[in-house]
């Protein structure tokens, strides 16, 4: 499923990033790429608070929709 369908507290491994190359590369530099662990901490004001490699990020729904997790 996509990250946007996950519930807060869900921990998963990223299966695929489906965005354009530039965005993929950017996410990659944050450690957000295939095979990496991702935790969904909370969903606040339409944004997804995620944990990747010990850092917290807020991403919008559009971005959560391009991250496929298991």
């Amino acid at each position: 499923m996509m990250l946007s369908q996950a519930k807060a507290g869900h921990k998963a491994i990223i299966q695929e990033i489906t965005g354009n190359e530039k965005l993929k590369k950017f996410l990659f530099s944050l450690g957000c790429s295939e095979g990496q662990e991702i935790g969904l901490i909370s969903i606040l004001a339409g944004n997804y608070i995620i944990n990747i490699k010990d850092s917290r990020y807020a991403i919008d729904r559009k971005m959560a929709e391009i991250i496929r997790i298991n």
């Binding site: 965005l23 608070i49 917290r56 990020y57 807020a58 991403i59 919008d60 559009k62 971005m63």
Partner: peptide, 9 residues
Amino acid sequence: SIFLIELPE
């Protein structure tokens, strides 16, 4: 534009 921001503690 797609929004991403790091949230420091």
